[in-house]
Design a protein around this nucleic acid. Sequence first.
RNA 1: GCCCCGUUCGUCUAGCGGUUAGGACGCCGGCCUCUCACGCCGGUAGCAGGGGUUCGAGUCCCCUACGGGGUACCA
Length: 504
Amino acid sequence: MIREASHQERLDTALRRSVKSPDPVRGTTVTVRVRFAPSPTGYMHVGNVRTALFNWLFARGQDGVFILRVEDTDQRRHVEEAINVITDGLRWIGMDWDEGPEVEGPFGPYFQSQRSDLYHEHAERLIDAGEAYLCYCEAEGADPEAACRCAERADPNDRIATGLAVRLSNPGGRSEFEDIVGGHLSFDNEQFGDYILVKSDGTPTYNFANVVDDTAMEVTHVIRGDDHVSNTPRQLMLYRAFGYDPPRFAHLPQILGPDGARLSKRHGAASLTEYRDRGFLPEAFMNYLALLGWAPRGEQEFLTPAELIDGFRLEDVRKSAAQFSMEKLVHLNSLHIQRLEPEERRDLAIGSLMRGEILDEASASDPEILERVGEIVEAMGNRFRYGEQIVEFGAHFFTEEVEIPGDLGSHFADDAVREALSSAADRFEACNEWTEEAIEEIVRASAKESGLKAAPLIHAVRVALSGTTAGPSLFTLVRLVGPRRSAQRIRSALDSFPAGETSE
RNA sequence: GCCCCGUUCGUCUAGCGGUUAGGACGCCGGCCUCUCACGCCGGUAGCAGGGGUUCGAGUCCCCUACGGGGUACCA
């Protein structure tokens, strides 16, 4: 019984054919070439970063070439700044490109705005071949329902002229292809009509420029968001009109916001820079992003960039959209932070402390302060899961005074505790050997003399010093706050919550 | 409207005809403990619905519902 080849079988065949396999014609090995082609909108959308990442992981895993191409055909704002947002973003997360802006390469220029000649040349070629024609309709104002009748006047001798758009002569039939992610896809070409290839202002449309550039740049795999699936048949018609072999396609599922809607600016955290600014690690962000729509074959989810490259398989990408989870990102980030060297962890903290205006430029380069921050960071241990939390949980280390929430006043209600607190404050100030052992002795002795167990005093001191019940070992906390400020904060707390007064 | 695509715990996912439906995040207990966090132990929770096919369906087919994308001289 002959059955149709399964999706997996067709996929295997196709992958074998196009990935690092001997080229039957030239007898050489075909190198994988993929591209990330963002338009310079001025910010890096997380969804685009994920698309870039999958391209990059695939290229690196296949010893291929990763191209960065800027799609700025329609953008007036082809400004330097918008390009930098893209290149800085890629660099931050750790994705390097082999061809593109800054590094250039043999298939440049890598800005579509600089490739007009190539597009016009290709448009002329299609007109000559009768595969496209000039459209004399008004660009605007025409009844959208009325079909363009210029096809009837199509003349291969026409030349591209300003003010006239170029349309494809739709060949009809069907466009079918094997998507690495989406499987077999089939479309009726008729539904796309004689769509525009070159706008009347002379600039190419997305579909046209893409086919011309992907061919010229010898792109072997087009890996992009699945909002482009229905552009694929349009492009396939063009490949056919030109007589080119189309590349392989892989359409990635969307990334949804926490509310299930497509991730957008509206969600407040759709921009790459926000994660960088909040003190997330690039390798953690990369790790998390890779897990959105793709899953490693093993059970380990904590993966370094090298492990991601090694394990990434385009055919393991899921077809359905994935929701972004801040909790899981934070969790992975915490794991990656723990893996950092002490100095790296300290530097992450320094960056966040500066952004949080706890430290200024000058103090951030002061070796003494640097060392102190290092100590604080180590004391905080895994209690901060991303940079910003060092500000949230550790600000009291850097201030003179500390504010104690009213509901923690109960820690200072007991007379014995107050007595021990006051005694401990005196001894802190008088202490001439400021070590954690000495501090512990003081605390335990003070508690004992007031007939207390250590715990209630320890808790009270912690609240007095840090304004919170959470934090590192009490003796470490006291040591870092120092004898003078510790004593001062204890007395201040005693003043703020007088004896006999019950604070709810 | 039409054309494509999708739907396994709240979330990310494993699963590719026979599983007590596995893992991770979160959440809830417990242990540890000067608090918190970590760590360890345990728990909660899922195959959208309906028809087929089959000895047997989360896995194959059809329909419905819901969701998404496209339908531009945007990319």
